[in-house]
Design a protein around this nucleic acid. Structure first.
Length: 789
DNA sequence: GCCCCTCGAGTTCA
DNA sequence: CTCGAGGGGC
């Protein structure tokens, strides 16, 4: 070995020791970890490997030679007569193969001889030891460094899952039961919710594991008692005056019989293959478990074989922890960028130094909004802990302030849009900041086009962000309507210019050929999208507050874009689930000349709406002068007042042209009449009256008569509950709606009937309570069948 | 006026 | 999937 190599290794080993010591101290003594467990494990493994390769580097104070740091002095020390183990870790199938092979070699077993393991989840909590004398709980201690822990008896007594007296009989005179104290996820979430509501008085917990550790180290057991802690037993230490079973799995059963919780995930497995199968089986359930686990543990089941295999240092040869990919990792923030959405929403995104978390490499993480950035105080250059919690989307869990470089400053939302330079404004009381550029902002235009082409909107297959960028950047497309004017050569030209600009030369060009297939496909996809439904068309326009559901409602109620594009907001409000805010947003969208031009353009250049129809009968029913008047949100005009006015005047025009004296004579209080009169003096209100009156006439003229359109369930409100066999809830909903019913989510006295499938819950109870009619699935199916077509 | 529920908008990676 | 906010029931 060359001196240079040895020198490097020695320096690296020293560095690793320093970092591990520091982390260990913060973790065990201060309860304030600075690096995630996975990183600690990785550093430890590197050091172990280094020391294995260069035994001369091993020092007596190396972290590999002891586990954990000295306990803090707040609690009495407890010496573990039988030391509490630490397990070797494995991260890959190969390592498990090697582990099992080593055991077979030592035991002189063939590769195909059966080798039984007791397998169990590895809880992410805090290992403890419970001592029972004559069946009574006398002392509980933390693991500490494995040799010496802390006496936390008083705190452990508060955990209801820990028996204070052993159940059954046949237990040894003295027995130490070992296991894990942990905090279930639900309890953890609930605690943190309370902490958030406390406005900083209660500090939120970083993770369930820390929560468990912190709770056990409370000086006041009454505080511990309030924390939702739980316990699982998985081993025994000292045993005196009694016999135990001869296998680990039998011993766990015994512990269970004596009153200890034992995980239901505990099982046995044969050989490496059996262990790996178990690993994957538990891994699939991992996210759904009510507690955190960071891996599984395999132990040789036969206790005599365990003794035969023995230990290396303090780690047993007969057991290993097989860990899952880390769900947390540290990385650094390289930049904080602003994304502009379709509505102009400016979302800060963290650009990360790529890290492998939970099975994928993460480079971006959303920071949601400025408040979130402020809460975390994320700064450029910071070291952060990135998490892929339960789901998929990575988030920055917290900043490791200790590793913050010098001269950083708090991040601030920029005042101007990075794309178009317009002001970024955050409305009072709103969480999101928005770019005010509107159609002048290239980012907003691109996002609008992206939305337009989306699968659930116009469904233009293959029109992704890259093409949209090229098409808008070179001016081929300024509005959705331009898409339908594109010719093949436009696309090819655009591609050529984009390649030129980006300095990318495709293979095909080098070969002297031009690839055209993609362009033909795109032109075809655009042509395909021309025929569409009214609901999709409305949704694709990207009107603020109009998503799929609202678009569908508008399409069903009014049936025709020619009508919808001119409806004033008080009329739009007649549609259930459309309130003032949404109605005004729709009205405002169509008030913009630019938007009207785009719609004209789209219709002229080939959009075909295949399902146009007359306004449904419900429109006619809802379109009374009283309803529209009440929807106008005029001061003092309640439903009751608008009824009175409608009775007195019959039409909106009549009210508009009524002299103030006549208004007062309508039966409404004088001050209300006066307020109405003064409102009617405003041009804006008069305009709204005129538009509404006009729209009423138009709609009434065109609306289907109630008779013609009446479905068998017209006017009925139906609630679905439980699961159906012959069709899904969605299908049932569609079919019921097609027959005129409104399908609601909860039962009230207005409900016409409830369809109860299998395992119907509280909604069925409510229906019975309110005396609402209940249908079973058979009756529904029969009914749908009878009215099919 | 308060609470519950549904809808909309934004987001990551293979 | 998750958060925020609009709608509407009580």
């Amino acid at each position: 070995m060359s001196p240079a190599v040895s020198n490097n290794a020695s320096r690296r080993a020293a560095e690793l020791r320093e970092r591990l010591d520091e982390a260990s101290h913060r973790y065990h003594v201060l309860d304030a970890p600075t690096i995630p467990d996975a990183e600690y494990d990785a550093l430890m493994r590197e050091l172990e490997a280094l020391e294995a390769a260069h035994p001369e580097l091993v020092t007596s104070d190396s972290p590999t030679q002891r586990v954990g740091a000295a306990p803090s002095s707040a609690f009495a020390e407890v010496r573990h007569e039988v030391p509490m183990l630490s397990l070797a870790n494995a991260f890959s199938d190969e390592e498990i193969g090697e582990f099992v092979r080593r055991i077979r070699t030592r035991l002189d077993l063939n590769a195909d001889a059966s080798l039984k393991f007791s397998v169990e989840p590895k809880f992410d909590g805090l290992a403890i030891s419970l001592r029972y004398e004559d069946g009574k709980f006398v002392r509980g201690a933390t693991r500490g460094d494995g040799e010496t822990g802390e006496d936390v008896t008083a705190n452990l007594r508060t955990i209801k899952q820990i028996p204070l007296k052993l159940h059954g009989k046949g237990w040894p005179t003295v027995i130490e039961v070992r296991g894990e104290v942990y905090m279930p996820r639900a309890g953890f979430e609930k605690y943190n919710e309370t902490a958030r509501e406390s406005n900083g008085k209660i500090k939120p917990l970083i993770n369930p594991r820390n929560a468990a550790a912190g709770s056990l180290r409370q000086l006041d057991p009454r505080i511990t008692a309030k924390r939702p802690l739980a316990f699982y037993a998985y081993a025994v230490g000292v045993v005196e005056g009694g016999e135990l079973p001869t296998t680990h799995s039998a011993m766990l059963k015994k512990l269970h019989a004596w009153g200890f919780p034992v995980s239901t995930l505990v099982d046995t497995a044969d050989g490496a293959q059996g262990c790996l199968t178990y690993f994957h089986r538990v891994g699939e359930q991992r996210d759904a478990l009510p507690f955190d686990i960071d891996g599984v543990v395999y132990k040789i089941d036969d206790l005599a074989t365990q003794r035969e295999l023995g230990f290396v240092g303090r780690t047993p040869r007969w057991a290993i922890a097989h860990k899952y990919p880390a769900q947390e990792q540290t990385t650094t923030i390289e930049a904080i960028e602003i994304n502009i959405g379709r509505t102009g929403a400016a979302t800060p995104t963290a650009r990360l130094k790529p890290v492998f978390v939970g099975g994928v490499t993460v480079t971006n993480a959303t920071l949601h909004n400025a408040d979130q950035v402020a809460r975390l105080d994320v700064r450029i250059g910071d070291t952060v802990i990135v998490r892929r919690a339960g789901d998929v989307i990575p988030e920055v869990a917290r900043v490791v302030v200790e590793r913050r470089p010098a001269h950083t400053h708090r991040w601030k939302m920029p005042a101007h849009c990075p794309i178009c330079g317009s002001a970024i404004v955050r409305e009072e009381g709103e969480v999101v900041a928005r770019c005010t550029g509107g159609l002048a902002c290239a980012a907003q235009v691109q996002q609008a086009l992206f939305h337009f082409a989306a699968r659930r909107a116009m469904d233009i297959d293959g029109l992704g962000e890259r093409f949209i960028e090229g098409l808008t950047d070179f001016g081929y497309v300024k509005s959705p309507a331009d898409l339908y004017k594109l010719k093949l050569h436009d696309l090819l030209e655009m591609k050529r210019r984009a390649d030129e600009r980006d300095g990318t030369t495709p293979e095909t060009v080098k070969a002297g050929k031009v690839a055209t297939k993609w362009a033909e496909n795109l032109i075809e996809a655009i042509a395909q999208s021309r025929r569409t439904t009214l609901a999709r068309f409305l949704y694709s326009l990207g009107i603020n507050h109009v998503g799929e559901s609202t678009a569908k409602a508008l399409a069903t109620w009014f049936g025709d874009i020619a009508l919808i594009r001119h409806l004033p907001w008080p009329i739009l409000k007649l549609v259930p689930d459309i309130g003032g805010e949404v109605a005004r947003a729709i009205d405002a969208f169509f008030e913009q000349d630019g938007n009207q031009r785009v719609i004209d353009d789209l219709l002229e250049h080939g959009i075909v709406i295949t399902d146009a129809h007359a306004p449904i009968a419900k429109v006619r029913a809802a379109l009374t002068t009283a309803n529209v008047l009440a929807d106008m949100e005029l001061p003092g005009i309640t439903e009751k007042r608008s009824e009175q006015l409608a009775q007195a005047f019959d039409s909106l025009e009549a009210i508009l042209h009524a002299p103030p004296a006549k208004l007062s004579a309508s039966g409404v209080p004088l001050d209300v009449a006066a307020a109405l009169a003064s409102a009617l003096e405003q041009a804006q209100t008069r305009e709204l009256f005129k538009r509404s009156a006009h729209a009423m006439h138009l709609l009434l003229e065109r609306a289907e008569s109630a008779k013609g359109a009446a479905g068998p369930l017209d006017g009925k409100t139906v609630v679905l509950t439980g699961s159906l066999n012959s069709l899904t809830r969605d299908e049932a909903k569609d079919k019921l709606e097609a027959l005129g019913a409104k399908v609601a989510g909860s039962v009230s006295k207005k409900t016409s009937f409830v369809v109860a499938g299998a395992e119907a819950g509280s909604k069925l109870d409510k229906a019975t309570e309110l005396g609402v009619e209940v249908w079973d699935e058979a009756r529904l199916v029969k009914f749908l069948h009878a009215h099919a077509g």
